[in-house]
């Protein structure tokens, strides 16, 4: 699904992020920029969870079905249910989420655990498996490899590539060069440049 955002400026207290016209085709987009430049602000804008209410324009084309893997990945887990029930949180794709979690290296024994007993890497893989199997129109991932070893990171990026080949759009914010994980040449870049202390600019390279 195509994704369009008209040129605008996102204003927050003490910070502004200007966005050029963006047309995103299905594929993988690497969101890069220095720390504090506004990458998370942009992701929250896309997800419509900024403090300001809906700031999309009528000409924007924003997918309704969104997926999100937060940087603090445990926030995407519900502590009042166990790991298995967390994987089954989207009823239509529950089985797919379980099989994807197994492909990421999780075992049956891990599924019965309370979420606080999962390691960081296990928790992150559970969230990623769940979001990918949900097959959203757009999947936004904030540092999805932060708790993963190289082998798990490779499995995850492979799954993300398969998802984008099926028509999904993923925006990945990470300091890891994605070219280290895959030879995929069609990873495009969204760059957030800091203009000065309180202003940044985002453009599609």
């Amino acid at each position: 699904m195509k994704f369009t955002i008209q040129q605008r400026i996102i204003l927050l207290p003490g910070f502004s992020l200007s966005i050029e016209n963006i047309n995103l085709e299905p594929g993988i987009y690497h969101l890069r920029g220095p720390n504090g430049s506004g990458k998370t602000t942009f992701m929250k804008f896309l997800l419509d969870v900024l403090p300001e209410p809906n700031i999309f324009c009528e000409n924007d084309i924003i997918p309704q079905n969104k997926g999100y893997v937060p940087q603090a990945y445990r926030e995407a887990l519900m502590p009042w249910i166990n790991t298995l029930r967390n994987l089954q949180i989207f009823p239509d794709t529950a089985d797919k989420a379980i099989s994807m979690a197994k492909s990421f290296g999780l075992h049956e024994a891990d599924f019965n655990k309370a979420t606080y007993k999962l390691s960081g890497g296990q928790s992150q893989r559970v969230v990623i498996a769940r979001e990918l199997s949900f097959e959203p129109d757009i999947l936004i991932m904030d540092e999805p490899f932060s708790a993963l070893d190289k082998d798990s990171s490779f499995k995850v990026i492979t799954a993300i590539l398969e998802y984008s080949n099926r028509g999904g759009t993923s925006i990945i914010s990470t300091h890891i060069p994605l070219e280290n994980l895959t030879n995929e040449v069609l990873i495009r870049t969204l760059t957030v440049e800091r203009i000065h202390e309180m202003e940044s600019k985002l453009c599609l390279n």
């Binding site: 929250k44 997800l47 419509d48 969870v49 309704q64 079905n65 969104k66 999100y68 937060p70 603090a72 926030e75 995407a76 519900m78 502590p79 009042w80 949180i89 989207f90 949900f134």
Partner: peptide
């Protein structure tokens, strides 16, 4: 706020009792 944002993003896809349970939790 992180978990609440996540539940808001998926409000149409997951059971509606998760948000009140999140607040209670």
């Amino acid at each position: 706020s992180g978990r609440r944002h996540y539940l808001k993003i998926h409000s149409k896809n997951i059971a509606s009792w998760h948000m009140p349970l999140c607040l209670l939790w």
